[in-house]
Nucleic acid binder design. Structure first.
Length: 839
RNA sequence: GCGAGAGUGGCGGAAUUGGCAGACGCGCUGGAUUUAGGAUCCAGUGCCCCCGGGCGUAGGGGUUCGAGUCCCCUCUCUCGCACCA
């Protein structure tokens, strides 16, 4: 029956041919991949249109990869998700920009160079080539002309150019400050790169060092970073917005000045609770602040303080993070004057107050702040309740009362409620010059210097006469010297400083001997603007062509991991706002919508070498083919959920694709339209197109695939019962081929070809549906008695409430269920439901 | 501790505005066909049952003709922050 299988029977479930494949061929997905890939390359299917392209534009972006080696499961998931959006936009007739590039500066290349003597440039470029070929075979619809590498001088020249613009605007500056230090990687880290006291990259326990480093003044944009998020509501995942809000951490309160005995200048503290000022019974300065050292100097407590400070410095962040850590501190032998009641209160140095938040000094109100209370109890300090919250006395219970209440022991403010007191006391202090309303942020400036080799050099020259001098634009890029020409071994200072030829230059301003800044930039600087470069990757007159960016940006769909919620996504928003202020872009938010894909795990745990639960992507691809893996990943669940490979069945996905493939052979080789058509299948096809379109827009890809499976099951039934020549079967499968092409590009091309069409299915239009055909002829109306389903009636979709009620009451099943009860009320919600209330 | 989110079959997960719970798939059971099956196809598959039906969306309460969906309480889990004054 070879070749005629489609017409050879199978009129019922158990025909004489049942059990045999309908076709002696079997689907070989790997062979199909090899066959189509060159065809697609030749067709150049995914070139973004130029300025004169009349189609509406859509920028679909995936967070660009780091060239760590070959692609792994994580890549397979992220890019499968992003590719659906890009391919769907293409079929819908958009002019799509779907670019690819590499975030190619970073530690692994340097470590490979140190440990194995490899050249960082060669190592990087080889890995990129491997990944690029991996993506090509994985069938991602990139416009390959966009390909960029952040480690290319053509790219980092503009990273340096942008740095200089920030420098000119005072947004890049150097300061000496305690910084996070990774003893393993031998470099400083930004706050955002310290996770739970450990280095985000290598897991080493982070320590503190005092260093002079470059910073971006991101705090200046804190309000805008916060406030502009309202425009992202509903378009970015809530959890990302929440994380950014918490990270920026805006709080409002007041600055209050305290006169210090024996000091000319008063000291200002920040508090969110000026209403509790009468309850301030002591004063605390951060142990590692300059103020603490100054207050201790020359006094009786100097030695005690020095010993305490030594102890504090030794403590790692991990120790500091322990929640039940007892409060420690030392009395400095000095006193502050409470501005509202003139009381002299003792000043302590303690490490529970942070030097770099607020002013590094606090007024301590033990009755209404748990930390202050813990300290007061440890040091036997008085606890004065100034807000009656109705709770038990904190001095007795050891539990501070932070809630609302009425002021007591607060002189003229007694009787006020919390909110009112905050307002009044702040206003009164402001009037007397003792304070002012204040806003604070937990966000810190972005530390961008790194003491590593494989990064973008900072284009600054240090001159004894002129200070920090910008390298002139026409001398950019400041190129990295060859790795062979520097000492790469981690030693806590930048490797670039080990090459005197590179380091020593004439000052661009005065010509005197000077030295280059030998640090490199955090790689997050590189990735804060790459999405702009993609719009004009070969542009030579600036970082990007302003017109091209105006055409494509902002990004319509951005896909990437949630791990960048407060790193890359915050930094990119900051860069965009600065560029907006520079007049280079006309929008303030770079990414209009964000999809955070989950992770691929195995057996309940993240894949890791030590657990031995890694799943090798290349093996899976070789065993099942690209399409089966893409479908498996996308069908597993909502894109944002983690998926456990152990729960999945690539074999099952492969079977579905093979079923479709066999159907395409049967229908493709069937005699043209014969016999009755199948109205029900036509209807289902139109309904499926309608629903799938809506679901793709909602990024519900797992449900989309379920609907496509349902439709393919229905096509199978029609082919079995009416023959493969049924027009509805062909229409359904052709529609399926196009819809499938966004998930399983190779199989879809096979279907298209076997149905007798020329390549490529990827050049087709997204199928349209006719609402009139999609409309159901009849719908099932559920009839309930007291909420329980008693009958189901087939009714016209346009049935009236009265008609539905009449039909329901006439039902035998309903009469039986009613028995002797009398009908009290009928709720008729045509055409879906009638509920009869009886008793 | 604070903040956010989530609890649905053996499993992954479906379920417009509150309106047939469990779509689709995996797994499992039985069958057809086969030298063979890790292929293909058909049927079944939430739980209980006295075969009339009853019970079911973490647990308890509430609103409603009607709740997986809305409200309150409890429990559990995940994620984020973690002395931020």
């Amino acid at each position: 029956c070879f070749g005629t299988a489609g017409n050879s029977g199978r009129l019922g479930g158990m025909s004489e041919t049942a059990g045999y494949p309908r076709d002696e061929e079997t689907y070989d997905p790997l062979e199909a991949q090899d066959r189509w890939l060159p065809v697609w390359d030749k067709l150049e299917l995914y070139r973004a249109g130029g300025a004169d392209d009349p189609r509406p534009r859509k920028y679909v972006l995936d967070m660009f990869p780091y060239p760590s080696g070959d692609l792994h499961m994580g890549h397979a998931e992220a890019w499968a998700i992003g590719d659906v959006g890009a391919r769907y936009a293409n079929l819908q007739g958009f002019n799509v920009l779907h670019p690819i590039g590499w975030d190619s500066f970073g530690l692994p290349a340097e470590n490979a160079a140190i440990k194995r003597g490899l050249d960082a440039v060669a190592w990087t470029n080889e890995n990129i080539d491997v990944q690029a070929e991996g993506f090509r075979r994985y069938g991602i619809s990139f416009d390959w002309r966009t390909r960029l590498h952040t480690s290319d001088p053509d790219y980092y020249r503009w990273t340096q150019w942008l740095f200089l613009r920030f420098f000119e605007r005072g947004l890049a500056y150097r300061k000496n400050s305690p910084v996070n230090w990774c003893p393993n990687d031998q470099t400083v880290l930004a706050n955002e790169q310290v996770v739970g006291g450990k280095c985000e990259r290598c897991g080493a326990v982070v320590t503190k060092r005092n260093l002079t480093q470059w910073y971006f003044r991101i705090t200046e944009y804190a309000d805008r970073l916060l406030d502009d998020m309202t425009a992202l509501e509903g378009k970015w995942p809530d959890r990302v917005l929440t994380m950014q809000r918490n990270w920026i951490g805006r709080s409002t309160g007041a600055h209050v000045s305290f006169v210090i005995d024996g000091r000319d200048e008063p000291v200002t503290v920040y508090t969110t609770r000026p209403d509790t000022l009468y309850g301030a019974t002591f004063f605390v300065v951060a142990a590692d602040s300059a103020l603490a050292a100054e207050l201790a100097a020359g006094g009786d407590a100097e030695a005690d303080f020095a010993a305490y400070l030594e102890q504090v410095k030794k403590a790692t962040d991990i120790e500091r993070l322990a929640t039940d850590r007892p409060k420690t501190g030392v009395f400095l032998g000095r006193h502050a004057i409470n501005p509202v009641n003139g009381e002299r209160i003792p000043i302590y140095a303690a490490d529970y107050v942070l030097a770099d938040y607020g002013t590094g000094a606090i007024m301590a109100v033990p009755a209404h702040d748990q930390r202050d209370l813990d300290f007061a109890r440890a040091f036997s300090l008085p606890v004065v309740t100034v807000i009656d919250t109705g709770d038990d006395d904190p001095a007795v219970t050891g539990i501070a009362t932070a809630g609302d209440g009425v002021l007591v022991n607060s002189g003229p403010y007694d009787g006020l409620r919390k909110a009112e007191a905050i307002e009044r006391i702040t206003a009164d202090l402001a009037e007397r010059g003792g304070g002012s309303p204040a806003v604070n942020y937990r966000l810190r400036d972005w530390l961008l210097s790194r003491q590593r080799y494989w990064g973008c050099p900072i284009p600054i020259v240090h001159c004894a006469q002129c200070g920090e001098v910008a390298v002139p634009d026409d001398q950019l890029p400041v190129r990295l010297p060859d790795a062979a020409a520097v000492d790469l071994r981690p030693k806590g200072t930048s490797p670039l400083a080990s090459n005197p030829e590179w380091l020593n230059v004439a000052c661009p301003k005065c010509g005197a001997p000077a030295t280059r800044d030998a640090d490199t930039m955090d790689t997050f600087v590189d990735s804060s603007w790459y999405f702009l470069r993609y719009c004009s990757p070969d542009y030579i007159d600036g970082p990007f062509d302003v017109e091209a960016v105006r055409r494509w940006m902002p990004v319509a769909q951005y896909t990437g991991g949630v791990e960048h919620a407060i790193l890359h996504l915050l930094y990119s928003r900051f860069f965009t706002k600065v560029l907006h202020d520079m007049g280079m872009v006309d929008f303030v938010e770079p990414f209009s919508s964000l999809v955070n894909q989950g992770q691929v795990i195995n057996q309940g745990k993240a894949m890791s070498k030590s657990l031995g639960n890694g799943v090798e992507l290349q093996k899976e691809l070789a065993a099942h083919g690209v399409d089966a893996i893409r479908v498996t990943i996308l069908f597993a669940g909502p894109p944002e959920d983690d998926i456990d490979w152990a729960d999945l069945s690539p074999t099952g996905s492969g079977k579905w694709l093979a079923r479709l493939w066999r159907l395409s052979g049967e229908i493709g080789s069937a005699d043209a339209a014969s016999g009755d058509d199948d109205e029900a299948l036509h209807r289902l096809t139109h309904q499926t197109i309608e629903e799938v379109t809506r679901l793709i827009d909602a990024v519900r890809y797992n449900v989309v695939i379920a609907r496509l499976m349902s439709l393919s099951n229905a096509v199978r039934t029609t082919v079995d019962t009416r023959g493969a020549g049924t027009p509805a079967a062909r229409h359904a499968l052709e529609s399926l081929a196009v819809m499938l092409s966004v998930f399983a590009p190779y199989t879809a091309e096979e279907l298209w070809s076997r149905l007798g069409h020329q390549p490529s299915v990827h050049l087709q239009s997204w199928p349209s549906f006719d609402p009139a055909i999609a409309a159901a002829e009849s719908v099932t109306c559920v009839v309930q008695v007291n909420g329980k389903v008693r009958d189901r009636l087939e009714v016209p979709p346009g049935i009236s409430a009265d008609e539905a009620q009449q039909l329901a009451l006439a039902s035998d099943a309903v009469r039986k269920a009613l028995g002797v009860m009398t009908v009290r009320q009928v709720i008729s919600r045509p055409p879906r439901l009638v509920n009869i209330v009886a008793g």
